[in-house]
Amino acid sequence: MLLEAHQVSRAFGSFLALSGAELELAEGEIVGLIGPNGAGKSTFFNCLSGDLQPTSGRILFAGSEVTRATPEAHARLGIGRTFQVPATFEEMSILDNVMVGAFLRHPARGEAREAARRIVEFAGLDRLRDQPARSLGTPGRKRLEIARVLASEPRLILLDEALAGLNPVEIQEAIALVRRIHARGITLVIVEHIMEVILSLTGRVLVFNQGRTIASGKPRDIVDHPAVIEAYLGQRRQRRRRE
């Protein structure tokens, strides 16, 4: 197993955002993580990447315990992630953003630059290479985040709604990019709301609701699962009520 998360819980004050999440990930998989807003998906990612300490539970990566390790230690070990709200380095150029990632494995400037150039090209951002990150729109920022984390040469990437807010053409491009990343031998966990993306990319899906795993299995079966429909419909009903 590349990653094992056992009974991971996280509380904010008295509120349990995540309770007893389980995930076992084999090298080379693409796993989808779905669930309504507030289900705890980002919180789970934060725990898996060291950004938040789980209140309880254990996380192992490639056999070693990483439950309480810092985010930078996670990155060094090979767990990369993107953020739901893109956190690009706004004033830095796109190439420089990617170089920050590349420096992790290439301390020398020249090598880091070369590595970053290759990644920028791979991600299809070379035309914009010298623009500052702030000049990008949301789709561009999400792509830049992917490029940046790729440059840190991880074994596992956690993509948090990396395709949200993209138009259909951009979604197709992003799907192709994820496939090419996977083809490099990188394992992926994808949080995504668009079922089409989940269906076309993932081999296995986990469904979260209110901090718990309510279902898991093949994507085809999951879409018809009654608990999943209930979770999503319940949310839509709620949203209608709020409006």
């Binding site: 985010p71 930078e72 990155a75 990369g80 956190a87 690009t88 380095f89 920050v100 400037r109």
Partner: peptide
């Protein structure tokens, strides 16, 4: 400024959380 130190400093200034996620020992 041109080397890793400078890049890491600027990344820290721009956003510590993102910097750490890329392995920067902030």
């Amino acid at each position: 400024e041109r080397g890793r130190m400078g890049y890491y400093w600027r990344a820290i200034r721009a956003g510590e959380r993102a910097a750490r996620s890329l392995g920067v020992p902030v």
